[in-house]
Design a protein around this nucleic acid. Structure first.
Ligand SMILES: [Mn+2]
Ligand SMILES: [Mn+2]
Ligand SMILES: [Mn+2]
Ligand SMILES: [Mn+2]
Lengths: 153, 153
DNA sequence: CTGAAAGTGTAGCCGTGGCTACACTTCCGG
DNA sequence: CCGGAAGTGTAGCCACGGCTACACTTTCAG
């Protein structure tokens, strides 16, 4: 292995396009951002329910997310496993300190993304819709640029 | 069912916040955008390999995506199932007409997202990184707004 | 021309995130 | 105060997208 290539390959260092490891790293980060997205949405939603309704019940969470209650329950179990939430049987779901911090960060990001989209001329409903997905793929550097843009425009 | 609510519920039409069905619809759309994301990335990448290397082999695709070749093969099987690609055993992967159209749309979106991020002051590598995820959540309305913004600025 | 390296295909494992079905608990309305 | 509706928990199904392992095919260096 490594002594006789099976097929042609351009001389190393000749490609002017994105190199393989770079692109692979980007895709990998996008994949992990995706896996965090679900937890982020749950944390944000649970915080919202706790603040606006006083409690967060699995069925309420499920209804807001548009999934079956059993689906929400399994996601809540994952939140608990990751130390973001706790729950008392038949008494609702609560956020740990880590969960609350996550929820706050997520809410701030969500609002900032919506504001930038609106500032760029995106119609209100499209901005809300797209932000729900985009918010999970915005790095701190991009977030900072967004804030600067809104301040300076 | 429907004649005796088990728990308190605010009077209908009183909530000033996003109504439940609206939010559920947004989350649902975000979920389906997510499931399309993988196909979009594969289509874009395969088109790129076909154009720049003359052929798209499972191992090349896998290396560029940073996954095992067996993972790429299974995704390619899904592309075939959905009518986006074809493959000849041991001879590489090809795009159907539908696959090529998808790849072109995806590439255009990808570039537009990167350009907007750059225009907003996001550093180059962060823009490339974030675009890889954001691109799958940009609606036509948002895309149009992005194009207008770049033209008018 | 041939043998070994690289590439390819396939099987099977796991975790996630959807779902339905069903039993158990809570909580009101009468 | 009690019976039924709503809510809750749990089990089990499926598709997807990762992975490793292993057998088979192709290709090229010698
Ligand atoms: Mn979201
Ligand atoms: Mn959000
Ligand atoms: Mn992408
Ligand atoms: Mn892309």
């Amino acid at each position: 292995m490594g002594s006789s290539p099976a097929r042609k390959r351009g001389p190393p260092g000749t490609s002017a396009l994105p190199e393989e490891p770079t692109q692979a790293r980007r895709f990998g980060k996008a994949r992990s951002a995706q896996s965090a997205a679900l937890l982020e949405d749950y944390a944000e939603l649970i915080a919202d329910l706790l603040a606006n309704a006083g409690e967060a019940r699995p069925t309420d969470i499920a209804r807001r997310l548009g999934v079956a209650h059993a689906t929400a329950v399994k996601a809540i179990a994952r939140l608990k496993r990751e130390g973001l939430a706790t729950a008392r049987p038949y008494r609702g779901v609560f956020l740990t300190d880590a969960g609350q911090r996550l929820a706050e960060r997520v809410r701030a990001r969500h609002r900032l993304v919506v504001d930038v989209l609106r500032a760029l001329g995106v119609p209100a409903e499209a901005a809300e819709q797209d932000a729900e997905g985009i918010e999970h793929h915005v790095s701190d550097a991009t977030l900072a640029a967004f804030a600067r843009f809104l301040a300076e425009r």
